[in-house]
Amino acid sequence: MEINKITVLREGVNSTFQDLGRNNCYHIGLPFSGAMDKRNYLIANKLVGNKHNEAVIEFAYQGPLIKIEDGNINFAISGDIKFNIKKNGKLITGDCYKNYNLSKNDEVDIISTNNSVYGYFAVSGGFDLKNNFGSYSTHVRSKVGANNGNKIQKDENFFIKDFKDKHVNKSLKYINSKIEYIRILKGTNFDYFFEQSIKEFTSKEFLVTKLSDRMGMRLQGSKIKNLKETNIRSEGLIKGVIQVPADGNPIIMLSDHGTIGGYPKIGVVISADYDRLVQTPSGKKIKFKLIELKEAEKLYKLYQMETENLLSQI
């Protein structure tokens, strides 16, 4: 058996191993985690012939610089990413949604995301990692998941499981879609807020601030004024919930959020718009649109059909 080994020469920003997420752990205080942009995660795995829940490297804004230490790898990158490949000493500009074969001493330099946040690096066969609570998804705060719950560090080595079909070329024509609005449903404390504030919340633009990460997205815009109570009894949270603390600036819970919170919930982002929400970089603005549950369910079916259609084209 061949040994396929990579070295991380530069770690990039918030580079972690992720998969489809961790079920049934919220009640002990562990969030779902998992790949932030599920569609791009699934596409990356399909492009290298993996099963749909294989761990990949997720990075934010800038990805790692990876060198092949030994053996061969077949990789693909998904998202809207600028990257270079150094193969046999020659520099090639990389294309997303396409697989590449690399051998010993070749390098992949994931330079940056274009106007988006997250990207995915998948390898055929998958990384040889230990899972935790049935998932490879890393939650740095509780040190749970692959790589002992840590971010990927400079000079770390990782092994890649053996794989077949090394030279099958796969690709997908795909442009990451943008939407005008992030659609939301009413939160359980919708009536805690002034009518005027709700009007502003669902019509004005909100800035995605720098204080945004895998845990949450902090927004700034019109102050959302509370008419009832700025704290509620602590209760469970799920990803997509929009909480409004006393300062009136909304926070959207993302995949690594604390499992319990005590701020009123004004809204919840619909499942179909989550991938696109998380890809909004800090400094950009977003707008919300309030819809009904039935419509959200319909939009999710559409989203799911679209995803399956894309996967079937690979």
Binding site: N23, N24, C25, Y26, H27, F32, R233, S234, E235, G236, L237, I238, T259, I260
Partner: peptide, 10 residues
């Protein structure tokens, strides 16, 4: 997932 708290279950 099930998330029990003081007086709610999500």
């Amino acid at each position: 997932n099930l998330i029990p708290s003081y007086n709610k279950l999500i």
